[in-house]
């Protein structure tokens, strides 16, 4: 049987922070272990921060999140009315380059790499002026 979680939040960093805390609590309540909760929280933090930082939304705009926990895995749907992803494609998310001297170390560009690494499947669509990002996580052994 599937459990579901739905929220709409303002597109700002503090609302994202509060939502992530709430999701963590919900996942814990569903019996997921800390490692699985951490994996999902990291990936969702990156996906939600991307919307807040790059979709050119006002703080009165909303981000909708639907999460479903089923025996075959965890699915998360994110929707917003912000700017589309460039090229209508999620970035490849190459791993950051750490060679060279200290001054050249990257201070960003880890977001999509983390999302792609932590999910088993990722799908993006732009329909009716909305971004729709679907993320899937493998089923986890419960704590």
């Amino acid at each position: 049987m599937a459990e579901a979680f739905h929220r709409r939040i303002a597109a700002d960093g503090m609302a994202v922070r509060a939502l992530l805390a709430e999701i963590r609590g919900w996942l814990c309540l569903q019996g997921l272990d800390d490692a699985a909760c951490g994996k999902i929280e990291i990936a969702l933090a990156e996906a939600l921060n991307n919307v807040v930082e790059h979709a050119s939304l006002d703080s009165k705009d909303e981000i909708a999140l639907d999460m479903t926990l089923a025996p075959d895995g965890i699915g998360v749907e994110l929707r917003d009315r912000g700017a589309p992803l460039p090229g209508l494609t999620p970035p490849r998310g190459d791993p950051p380059t750490l060679t060279g001297d200290r001054d050249n170390l990257p201070e960003g560009g880890f977001g999509w790499f983390l999302i792609r690494t932590l999910t088993t499947d990722l799908h993006y669509a732009r329909t009716d002026g909305k971004n729709h990002l679907s993320l899937r996580f493998a089923p986890e052994s419960k704590a």
Partner: peptide
């Protein structure tokens, strides 16, 4: 308990701004 990629970037920046 939690660092996202912006936090990670800020830690890297904190190291770089300390100077050679």
């Amino acid at each position: 308990r939690f660092v996202d990629s912006s936090g990670l970037g800020a830690i890297v920046a904190a190291m770089k701004q300390m100077g050679a």
